[in-house]
Simulated assay, not measured.
Amino acid sequence: MTATTGRPTTSVGRRASAAPAPSFAHLIRLSDDTGLFEHARHAIVRREHGYCTDDVARGLVVTSRQPEPTEEVLRLAERYLAFLTHAQDAGGAFHNRLGHDRRWTDQPALGDWWGRALWGLGTAAARSPAAWIREEALVAFSRGATRRAPTPHAMAFAGLGAAEVLRRHPAHAAAAALLADAATAVGGPGPDPRWPWPRQQLTYASAALAEVVIAASQLRHGGPPLDDGLRMLAWLRDVQVRDGRLSVIPAGGWRCGAVRLRHDQQPIEAAAFADACATAATVTGDLGWETGVRQAVGWFLGDNDVGTAMWDPETGGGYDGLTAHGPNLNQGAESTLALISTLQHAGRWS
């Protein structure tokens, strides 16, 4: 069941200056001693849908990169890490779906969840303040980094984890090879200035593809030109900004030459855009990329096509999607993690 509503919002400047600190309250509400539940009806967990590695991995990303995490957040990270190591097989692939009965419903494979698992493990290995988490995460990352997925998105997510590992362990050969292969899988910008994207369709989390090319440009050997990733991200920024506000590619995607729809917009797009712009700003030193981070933060706070907030201040949960009539008020894991991820940039970049 979905529910939508529209609410008036304040000015852009007031929204940007009033960005709240990330709240982990709803993430705690969605978690138990096993992992992170995927779905919620409004703010209430829907246990019947169980857990997925995709979301647990994203949970490990945000809990690991939270500066000075509380004991409660650190326990979440440890729990999510335990889930991922349980999901991984001896060859480095991962199960994705675990039922509430604690039984896997699929076989280990190399889908997006493999890439996101390596992203989470790489982030934990690089950033966690707990040595025991860093050590175990690096072991699991190294096992998974020997594999290669058949899709650009899965490779891009894995490459982002590899980039994290290399920031702490510059000599990690498997991470360097994975990051280089991820950039190759994504490809560079095409020759058409009207559509300088490696493929003829934008689908989901598109900014992550540009981000991994930017990150790979920093490799000592075999990295793509930095300008390739920046051109991709700049074009994506230009097509997703409308009247100065972020208007992300909707869930149905957008194919070259087709009419672009405006809804339903997903929080994961705003979060991926914030991550990519923050990486571009860090790599280049060009503070102009901060604007993209601020626009992503603003999207959640109400500076979007409908002019309504995309989160619930009472629960700390993120709404599941922006429709033409307002937000889908369900507060699942993916949307809440996207909110937390974006707000983590707010203190530094907005």
Results as ranks from 00 to 15, higher is better:
Q88F: 03
A216K: 10
T336Q: 02
R46F: 00
V259M: 04
D228L: 02
A158V: 01
T315W: 05
L76C: 05
Y204C: 03
L233F: 01
H39M: 04
L233H: 01
S64I: 08
R220A: 15
L230R: 01
R237G: 12
T282D: 15
G307N: 04
R58Y: 08
F157V: 02
A40Y: 02
A57T: 07
T2G: 12
W289E: 06
T342G: 07
L138S: 04
G347N: 08
I28Y: 00
R147G: 05
D303W: 13
T2E: 14
C277E: 03
E269D: 12
S247N: 12
R220K: 13
T63C: 11
E269Q: 13
P108I: 09
L160I: 06
C256S: 10
N96T: 08
R97N: 14
E164A: 15
H169G: 00
T342R: 05
A130D: 14
L339C: 08
C52E: 09
R97C: 11
T279D: 06
H95F: 11
T2W: 07
D228C: 07
P22K: 08
G285I: 12
P196A: 02
L246E: 00
H42T: 00
R15W: 03
P198V: 09
G244M: 02
F24H: 08
L81M: 08
G347D: 09
W132F: 11
A216M: 09
Q265M: 13
V56Y: 03
T9A: 14
P8G: 03
H221G: 00
P267F: 06
E314L: 12
P129W: 07
Y319M: 08
A21G: 10
D275I: 01
S350G: 15
Q295M: 13
R7S: 12
S341D: 14
H86V: 04
R65S: 09
I268V: 15
A18C: 01
A281P: 04
T282M: 06
T282L: 09
V239E: 11
G285Y: 13
L329Y: 00
A175W: 05
G318I: 06
G318Y: 08
N330L: 10
G318D: 07
P198F: 05
P152I: 03
Q265V: 14
H26D: 03
A18E: 14
A296T: 04
H221R: 14
H95L: 08
P129C: 07
H49A: 03
D33T: 14
M1L: 09
V213S: 06
G144P: 02
V239I: 15
A281E: 15
P108S: 12
I44P: 00
A130H: 05
L84C: 00
V12N: 02
L322P: 13
Q240C: 14
T53W: 02
T2F: 06
P225S: 05
P327W: 04
F273C: 01
V306D: 09
E334W: 07
L339Y: 09
W289H: 08
H172Y: 04
A21R: 15
T34W: 08
A130K: 12
A258P: 03
T34G: 01
C256N: 13
R127H: 15
A280S: 12
E38F: 04
A16D: 03
G326C: 10
P67F: 07
R168P: 02
T203V: 14
A137I: 08
Q218K: 11
H169F: 14
E135K: 13
P129G: 07
A43V: 02
E71Y: 00
V212Y: 10
